[in-house]
Simulated scan of single mutants.
Amino acid sequence: MPQTITRGYKTLLDEANAKIETLPAADAIALHGREDVVFVDLRDPRELEREGRLPGAVHCPRGMLEFWVDPESPYHKPVFAQDKTFVFFCAGGWRSALSAATAQDMGLKPVAHVQGGFTAWKKAGGPIDGGEPPEL
């Protein structure tokens, strides 16, 4: 008998987006470089190599988020203990919505995520380091 999923990813995303702040890419770009804001890149290392990086962003693989945020965890990262605003992003905004909601549920605040993720950031003209050159 197949599994019966009662709350799919669309429901989880709707629930996450209902309780977190979502920043359009242009608003996120306006925050870039501020001392009181930490951008958190949740993408896989292969995505970073292929697409490039947001300058100054902290890379936190999605699978490590809860362990890096919690000061009781042996994997805790001090960056998450700072009194700053944490802006999460991924490639398209799904992982970042779920991550921002999780971090907020854990007590991290304030948090937000970038609507449309790194893809929207690039389209809006946000700064990027690296990435593979486009195919000619």
Rank of each mutant, 00 (worst) to 15 (best):
M1L: 09
T4Q: 13
I5S: 02
I5G: 01
T6D: 02
R7L: 02
Y9I: 11
Y9Q: 05
K10C: 02
K10Q: 11
K10H: 07
K10E: 13
L13I: 13
L13D: 03
L13A: 06
E15C: 10
E15K: 08
A16I: 07
A16K: 06
N17P: 01
A18R: 13
K19V: 15
I20W: 00
I20Y: 00
E21Y: 01
T22I: 10
A25H: 06
A25E: 08
D27V: 02
D27H: 02
A28Y: 08
A28D: 10
I29K: 12
I29E: 11
I29L: 12
L31K: 15
H32V: 08
R34N: 04
R34V: 07
E35W: 01
E35R: 11
D36I: 07
D36S: 08
V37W: 02
V38W: 03
F39C: 03
D41L: 04
L42I: 05
L42A: 13
L42C: 12
R43V: 02
D44G: 04
D44S: 05
R46G: 01
E47K: 14
E47M: 12
L48N: 13
L48V: 08
L48T: 05
R50M: 10
E51V: 04
G52A: 10
G52N: 12
R53L: 14
L54N: 01
L54F: 14
P55C: 11
P55L: 12
G56V: 04
H59D: 11
C60F: 03
C60S: 15
R62N: 09
R62M: 14
G63H: 04
G63T: 04
M64W: 12
M64D: 09
L65H: 09
L65E: 01
E66N: 09
F67C: 04
F67L: 14
W68Q: 15
V69L: 10
D70P: 00
P71H: 09
E72I: 00
S73C: 06
S73M: 04
K77D: 13
P78F: 04
P78Q: 10
P78E: 14
V79H: 12
F80R: 04
A81G: 15
A81P: 00
A81T: 14
Q82E: 15
D83R: 13
D83P: 01
K84D: 06
K84T: 05
K84N: 07
V87N: 08
F89R: 10
C90S: 12
C90L: 04
C90V: 03
A91W: 00
A91D: 06
G92P: 03
G93I: 10
R95P: 05
R95F: 01
A97P: 03
A97E: 05
A97R: 02
A97F: 07
L98S: 07
A100D: 14
A101K: 15
T102M: 15
T102K: 15
T102A: 15
A103Q: 10
A103E: 10
Q104P: 04
Q104D: 11
D105P: 01
G107I: 10
G107E: 11
L108R: 11
K109R: 15
P110A: 06
V111L: 07
A112F: 02
H113K: 05
H113N: 14
Q115K: 15
G117L: 03
F118L: 03
T119L: 05
W121I: 07
K123N: 11
I128R: 12
I128G: 09
D129M: 06
D129G: 03
G130F: 08
G130L: 09
G131S: 08
G131A: 09
P134M: 11
E135C: 02
E135M: 10
E135N: 08
L136Q: 10
L136V: 01
